[in-house]
């Protein structure tokens, strides 16, 4: 297993945000989290990446506990988090953003990986010296994905990668994620577009009020009448 999260509890100001969520992400698998707004999906990702600290529960990456690590150490351990709203460094160039993605890397393959990102998204390669803030939403998402890839993570997490994008761009981003999946990348994604998420995912979890209410292979969940009624209606 790449990632195992067991019985995570977390509350903000007396409100329970996570109420015992558990999930696993197998090596090379794609896991999708679906649920309504405020169900706790993003909180799960932030707990994994160390931005938030669960009050109880355990998170292990390839068997190693990471729930006590600060965010910068979680990245070093192998989890890259592509946050909601993309959160690029708008004042910096494409290239600087990518370099920041690979900030911890000391190996000689950084340049090669950067070239791979430019191959994946040629528009970034053409505009590598431009400031990220000047790009369209879809292009920014590409850069955010590229930036996350630069860390060569064991687990790549996407939080709402298609939010606010045009249909064409949504298609493009989902295709990219599918491509990454086919290349063997292990992915945990939160997506409010449940249909898209479950079609991409090998395995899905339905999160509601901080709990895992259903789980199963993506296609099974897609076929489930309760899921269809609640999230695909």
């Amino acid at each position: 297993m790449t990632l195992v999260a067991e019985r995570l509890f977390m509350s903000f100001g007396g409100l329970l945000a996570l109420d015992g969520v558990s999930l696993t992400v197998p090596d090379g698998g794609v896991v999708g989290l679906i649920g309504t707004n405020g169900a706790g999906k993003s909180t799960v990702l932030k707990a994994v990446s160390g931005l938030l600290r669960p009050h109880r529960g355990e998170i292990r990456l390839r068997g190693r506990p990471i729930h006590h690590l600060p965010a910068h150490a979680v990245l070093a351990a192998g989890v890259a988090h592509c946050p909601e709203g993309r959160r690029l460094f708008a004042g910096m160039t494409v290239e600087e953003n990518l370099r920041l993605g690979g900030h911890l890397r000391r190996d000689r393959h950084v340049a090669k990986d950067m070239a791979r990102v430019y191959d994946l998204f040629p528009v970034l390669g053409e505009r590598r010296t431009q400031r990220a803030g000047l790009f369209s939403g879809g292009e920014q998402q590409m850069l955010a994905i590229g930036r996350a890839l630069m860390a060569r993570p064991a687990l790549l997490m996407f939080d709402e990668p298609t939010m606010g994008l045009s249909p064409i761009m949504i298609r493009r981003i989902l295709d990219t994620i599918a491509l990454l999946r086919n290349q063997g990348t292990t992915i945990l994604m939160v997506e409010q577009n449940a249909l898209a998420a479950l079609m991409l995912a090998d395995h899905g979890y339905v999160i509601d009020l901080g709990r895992t209410t259903m789980s199963g292979p993506g296609t099974d969940l897609l076929a489930d009448p309760r899921v269809r009624a609640a999230y695909l209606g």
Partner: peptide, 15 residues
Amino acid sequence: RATAQDPETARLMGI
């Protein structure tokens, strides 16, 4: 500079 612009995301970069 990354920390100045967005400290939380900077942490996600391993900073």
